[in-house]
Computed example of a mutant assay.
Amino acid sequence: MSEGVDIFHALKDLDIPYEKQEHKAIFSEEDSKDVVITLKGTDVKNLFVKDKNKNYGLVSMDLHKRADLKKIAEQFGFARLSFCNPDELKQYLNITPGSVTPLCIMFDTERKVKILYDQNFEGKKVIIHPLRNTASISISFEDLKRFTEHFGHTWQLGDVYKND
């Protein structure tokens, strides 16, 4: 978890209800196959990406689908994308690999990171990490958007999937 930050206190202050489940550490989609999440909602994976011009983006999407980086780059208005390294994760989102969550946008006080949410989240609950990969929480997508806006960020909805 990001040192000194109680995300549950932040959620309470914003009057955002959530359900929480503790579990073993999940570092990847592969790890998630060994964990049974009983929370209601869409399991989310988050991609922290950049282009050669040092434009940064956070993409939140369905864990079980494949990202289309070309589509994502077009929607952000970025050049060809690559994944950020652990140092960039720490610098911009104050988080370590495996714990990325849309909630860590609260640490991007300079608003360098653009946010793209899966358009299929509308009207649903999402299951995300609460700044650590040893728990998951379920919150409404409406509340996640409100959390994002509270910390001064805009967001966009997009189609982020490969058409298989």
Score class of each variant (00 low, 15 high):
residue 74 E to C: 11
residue 74 E to W: 11
residue 81 L to Q: 06
residue 79 A to P: 01
residue 74 E to Y: 15
residue 91 Q to R: 12
residue 85 N to W: 00
residue 84 C to S: 04
residue 71 K to F: 10
residue 92 Y to M: 03
residue 78 F to Q: 06
residue 85 N to I: 02
residue 80 R to H: 05
residue 97 P to D: 03
residue 81 L to V: 05
residue 95 I to P: 03
residue 95 I to H: 02
residue 89 L to M: 15
residue 93 L to N: 00
residue 74 E to T: 14
residue 86 P to L: 12
residue 95 I to F: 02
residue 81 L to K: 06
residue 67 A to I: 10
residue 90 K to S: 14
residue 76 F to H: 06
residue 68 D to K: 12
residue 76 F to C: 02
residue 77 G to R: 04
residue 84 C to K: 00
residue 71 K to P: 10
residue 72 I to Q: 10
residue 75 Q to T: 15
residue 79 A to I: 01
residue 82 S to G: 07
residue 96 T to I: 14
residue 78 F to H: 07
residue 87 D to C: 04
residue 73 A to Q: 13
residue 86 P to Q: 11
residue 91 Q to L: 11
residue 87 D to A: 08
residue 91 Q to H: 09
residue 75 Q to Y: 14
residue 72 I to R: 08
residue 69 L to F: 12
residue 94 N to W: 02
residue 84 C to Q: 00
residue 96 T to D: 09
residue 71 K to G: 10
residue 93 L to H: 01
residue 80 R to Q: 06
residue 86 P to T: 11
residue 83 F to M: 09
residue 72 I to P: 10
residue 74 E to S: 15
residue 70 K to S: 13
residue 97 P to A: 01
residue 81 L to E: 05
residue 97 P to W: 01
residue 85 N to A: 05
residue 81 L to W: 03
residue 91 Q to M: 09
residue 74 E to F: 11
residue 92 Y to E: 05
residue 88 E to S: 09
residue 91 Q to K: 11
residue 84 C to V: 00
residue 68 D to H: 13
residue 79 A to F: 05
residue 67 A to Q: 06
residue 71 K to Q: 14
residue 82 S to Q: 04
residue 92 Y to C: 06
residue 88 E to A: 09
residue 78 F to L: 08
residue 74 E to V: 13
residue 91 Q to I: 03
residue 75 Q to G: 15
residue 75 Q to H: 14
residue 90 K to T: 12
residue 87 D to G: 04
residue 80 R to D: 02
residue 86 P to E: 13
residue 80 R to L: 03
residue 94 N to L: 03
residue 82 S to I: 05
residue 83 F to Q: 04
residue 81 L to A: 08
residue 91 Q to C: 07
residue 90 K to Y: 08
residue 69 L to A: 09
residue 86 P to N: 11
residue 90 K to R: 12
residue 78 F to I: 09
residue 95 I to W: 01
residue 79 A to T: 04
residue 94 N to K: 03
residue 93 L to C: 04
residue 72 I to W: 12
residue 94 N to F: 04
residue 67 A to S: 12
residue 91 Q to E: 13
residue 80 R to A: 05
residue 75 Q to E: 15
residue 91 Q to S: 09
residue 73 A to D: 13
residue 75 Q to A: 15
residue 77 G to W: 06
residue 88 E to V: 07
residue 84 C to A: 06
residue 74 E to I: 12
residue 91 Q to N: 08
residue 92 Y to F: 10
residue 82 S to C: 02
residue 73 A to E: 11
residue 71 K to R: 15
residue 68 D to S: 15
residue 81 L to I: 05
residue 76 F to D: 01
residue 82 S to Y: 03
